[in-house]
Amino acid sequence: MLELAILGHLADGPLHGYVLRRRVEQLSGHTRPISDGSLYPAINRMVKRGLLARHTEPGAAAAQRYVLTLTDAGRAELLERLREPTQQDITDHNRFFTLLAFLSLLPDTEQQHAVLRRRLEFLETPASFFYDGDRPLPAEEVADPYRRGMLLMARSISRAERAWLHEVLDGQGGTTG
């Protein structure tokens, strides 16, 4: 998720490291804060792999600042991750939102829709946080008010997301590409 967010934000243009960190945090920080201890090692790995280029520019107060840019290899990697996301990118809500934030960078609408269809298929598979054997328990069968609340909220969110996915895939949600 972190690498995808880095690649996606840099697809818009070069960024200073601190600006990139802020943008990554704004996208996902409310659920998964980004520390320097995870961001900068990820950037260093991506520079070594040739996905990003780093150069220095003079800072406002004399200290130099690093500026990161996406390389051609980085753009190719980004498009491949968007075109063929992992199953976890499809099933994990936060990872999917990161993917969704950059999906319009895929130039082919049919490829965008293939990703959305995978998410829709996942959402339409019966599931629950709680089970009776192999049978998912619906909220109406859960006595604990907090667990029932979890199920009711998840159902509502899933219903809204499925409606939006159907709207886009059926051609009523405007173009995505």
Rank of each mutant, 00 (worst) to 15 (best):
L10T: 09
R159L: 14
A143M: 13
P85E: 03
H30E: 09
Y146R: 05
V47E: 00
P145A: 04
S158K: 09
L10W: 03
D89V: 11
G17K: 07
T56V: 15
G174R: 10
T56F: 15
L100Q: 05
L152F: 08
R95F: 11
I157L: 01
R147Q: 10
D89G: 05
P14E: 05
L39S: 03
G50E: 08
T69Q: 04
H113V: 12
V19F: 04
V67N: 00
G173V: 15
R119K: 11
F122R: 00
D72L: 15
G17C: 13
F97V: 14
H166E: 10
L165A: 04
A139I: 12
D92E: 10
L169W: 04
Y18H: 12
G50K: 09
L20S: 04
R118M: 09
V24L: 01
A62Q: 06
F97C: 07
Y131G: 08
L52N: 00
G50W: 13
K48L: 10
E84M: 08
M150H: 10
R75T: 13
S35I: 12
P41Y: 09
F130L: 15
A61P: 10
T71W: 03
R49Y: 08
Q112P: 08
L151Q: 02
G133H: 04
Y66K: 02
R83S: 08
R159D: 10
A143T: 13
R65D: 02
L120V: 10
R22Q: 13
A42E: 08
G8L: 09
P136N: 00
E25L: 10
L78V: 13
R21L: 12
L52E: 01
E57L: 15
L20W: 07
H166M: 12
G13V: 11
R22G: 09
A143G: 15
P85D: 04
R65A: 07
G17M: 14
S35V: 11
G173L: 12
Q87A: 14
R65W: 09
E141Y: 05
F122E: 01
A63E: 05
G17R: 07
Q87I: 14
A163D: 05
V115R: 00
E141N: 06
A163E: 06
A61Q: 11
A73N: 05
R75G: 10
R83Q: 06
S128R: 02
S128Q: 03
Q87P: 13
G149K: 04
F130K: 05
A63D: 04
L120R: 01
R83L: 09
R118V: 12
A61R: 11
A63P: 03
R117I: 14
L120N: 01
I34H: 00
L68N: 01
F96A: 02
A63T: 13
T56A: 11
I157F: 02
D72K: 13
Q26P: 10
H93Q: 11
I34F: 01
P138L: 05
A42R: 06
V19E: 05
S38Y: 07
G174F: 14
L10P: 03
L10N: 01
L39T: 12
L105P: 14
F122M: 04
A73K: 06
A154H: 05
Y66G: 11
L120A: 03
L100M: 10
G37E: 03
Q172D: 09
Q172A: 13
